[in-house]
Design a protein around this nucleic acid. Sequence first.
DNA 1: GAAGATTGATTTTTCAATCTTG
DNA 2: CAAGATTGAAAAATCAATCTTC
Lengths: 163, 163
Amino acid sequence: MRAMTEPRWLTPAQLAAWVRFVAVVELLPSVLDSQLQRDAHLTHFEYFVLAMLSEAPERRMRMTALASLTNATLPRLSHVVSRLEGRAFVARTPSSDDRRGTEVSLTEEGWDKVVATAPGHVATVREHVIDLLDDRDVADLERIATKMLIRLDPDERVGSRTP
Amino acid sequence: MRAMTEPRWLTPAQLAAWVRFVAVVELLPSVLDSQLQRDAHLTHFEYFVLAMLSEAPERRMRMTALASLTNATLPRLSHVVSRLEGRAFVARTPSSDDRRGTEVSLTEEGWDKVVATAPGHVATVREHVIDLLDDRDVADLERIATKMLIRLDPDERVGSRTP
DNA sequence: GAAGATTGATTTTTCAATCTTG
DNA sequence: CAAGATTGAAAAATCAATCTTC
């Protein structure tokens, strides 16, 4: 085949953790999507976009900033924003300072949608994830997820919050 | 709106853990898919199907069993198996005992594909996840993922391995 | 009627251009 | 030429039937 420096397989403990973790990664999105689709006709990603906008100053954000915040590519975000725009949940306006840029803003309808949808979504998150974890688990999960993000998302300076 | 018993929001600690965890869940699949797509023209799910088959007795399995093992729905698995069949990595044969059933088996080409692809995939898993975690992290991750699976996947009796 | 599985249509994501402004 | 963003085509996942056998 090709010259490979003897692949280092996972130890039994690592493999056990990986197998379960990857199962969670596979299953969690469909649980979140199902509830949101059923109760609000929204994918989890669409909801997340609206939620991030709802917390932004003036409820508006540049496409690139929103893409980074939602861990999405720009093409993906652009398509989703178009869909949300068609439903009147967001509006696009050209950026005033940089004329290449586009700003997305949450409309009144969009805000109402987030407000109406959030409780059911949080309940799902609690039911399937958070309420199963005690305080120690939560702390451990944050520590581990933070470590992973350093490599998965090198651009996002994980951990540095400008207060 | 409707009668809701005051939504219980997440505590700051829970929210911090959730935000990071959900970012990992969003980012990890594309990292795995990218490497496999680039090096083997396989999605992560396709690879996982081949890998599970490669470890099964006789390298063959019923569709339903394989769907359960790969955390997928039957329609999804069926489409993916069709694609893999088209590439001659797997073959379908009617089940001998239950004539409703279908058995999928890994072909020689499929086996070779897994053998050739596994090292690069494990390297990616190490680089982006496992090598960032120390022994304690790995143990914590398995504990937490196991708790989550109990709710995310109620059918799979997590934790009971018949030796 | 339920279990096992497949199929076709719809929806969403990804990929490769493309366009415009800095 | 890089950065910001969009677009349309291609690939994949989901959803709602459908079909066969138990």
